[in-house]
Design a protein around this nucleic acid. Structure first.
Lengths: 230, 230
DNA sequence: CCAAAAGTGTTAACCCTACACCCATGT
DNA sequence: ACATGGGTGTAGGGTTAACACTTTTGG
């Protein structure tokens, strides 16, 4: 499809001319992970202007032939080499002056990933997991985007098997509980929590190996067939 | 702020030229109302191309100095003369070919309004409330947008006092119940529903006037101070 | 040996659901 | 007179929340 309706001037290197006022469209990834103890979010150090050297969420301009989500997946891959399954779009940020360069509207996504190593590339000078309660100053309005994402993740936990994407395939009940407690910012009683999880019948318990002492937590996994993959 | 970073060619009437590929940004309003019996959604008949003569949601291009929500409010006002309080952003639609003219990304909003008369103007040849189960064919991907909005409204009812914006200031319990039933697509027991609503203590019951027969339903209103206005 | 982590059951309060009858009105 | 709409209370089942002790290991 034609995204540029008028031809550019001879010798002009910037061919993006349009009949109606336009905006630049970006997609940003608020990527969470969990190491069994803490919740992390993935940041990159910007290699280019504006906000060069600042920490920010991975993301960038959406290409003419991509949806916002496709753009988000590509940018995350390019900048951090991370491929994730779960992408959930949250509210766009469209304040007219949120980008000093030009009018830019961003579509932010919550991304859920396992806590794997990341490598910076492309525009990113560095990529690093930060504990969610120890974030540095962020570029643009990314602090606000983070707050939105955090709140949306909390709401999402009611409906989506968020833990499935954040935990390793095999995990313990205390790990699952800690994850829920961090996301919801509250405490649960161990017994009540386990009862509730078991009553949902989405978990599978692994056989305890012979003579495994009680001190070691039992292993669980998600029943694949019970998940409504979004 | 500069939304056009490069000057236009002499004699060129379309000054919107940019360094990066751009998209057109629109905002669309999925406006609901309730007349005590049915749930309605507001459509306009398009006065211009593309999809001229088709029914569609009110909406249009977001101006360079507006947020998406400001654009949505303005377009709704211009096309239907409706002013509403409640705007809730839902997921953007960004398929590259969703608009035959050019790359267009739309930010749709759920709008809640009282069931008042509307008058078409501006781009709109006609404006009309349609019962939600009797929608005509819609322009663009507006059918999909409607489905999303309908589902989001259902979810929203759990958290937001949606009924406050859809009902007149004074209403009866059966009206409130019908509204919930239509939105959630289910049936409630009268007694259980009233008990539940009363237990939330967000409703105020008006005094029954002297000798008012029991056949007439009691009047309720929302306690203003209990609403967390979004 | 002590602190920290994990396993295990019971009870009371609360909430949700289901259900039936009466009264007043309009047709 | 009858169909319709609205008002009212109770009992049972399920869910949630609160609660303490034992075992094992690592420091």
């Amino acid at each position: 499809m034609a995204h540029s309706v008028y031809k550019y001037r001879t010798g002009e290197a910037y061919p993006h001319c349009y009949k109606y006022p336009q905006v630049a469209l970006t997609a940003d990834c608020v990527t969470f992970s969990f190491d069994g103890k803490n919740l992390y979010v993935l940041l990159i150090r910007r290699g280019g202007e504006p906000f060069k050297g600042c920490w920010a969420f991975p993301g960038g301009f959406v290409n003419p032939d991509e949806t916002a989500e496709e753009g988000a997946r590509r940018e995350l891959r390019e900048e951090t080499s991370l491929e994730a399954e779960y992408f959930e779009q949250i509210k766009v940020f469209s304040a007219p002056d949120r980008d000093p360069r030009q009018r830019t509207v961003t579509v932010p996504f919550i991304v859920l990933s396992s806590h794997t190593n990341v490598v910076a590339s492309d525009d990113a000078a560095q990529a690093k997991w930060f504990p969610v309660d120890q974030l540095p100053d962020l570029a643009f309005d990314h602090k606000q985007i983070f707050e939105e994402a955090r709140a949306a993740l909390k709401r999402s936990l009611n409906f989506n098997p968020v833990a499935y994407y954040l935990l390793p395939q095999r995990f313990t009940m205390p790990q699952l509980q800690r994850l829920h407690e961090i996301i919801l910012d509250c405490k649960f009683d161990r017994r009540n929590f386990a009862r509730k999880m078991n009553s949902l019948s989405i978990l599978e318990e692994e056989e305890r190996s012979q003579g495994m002492p009680r001190r070691i937590a039992s292993i669980f996994s998600f029943k694949k067939d019970k998940l409504l993959l979004p």
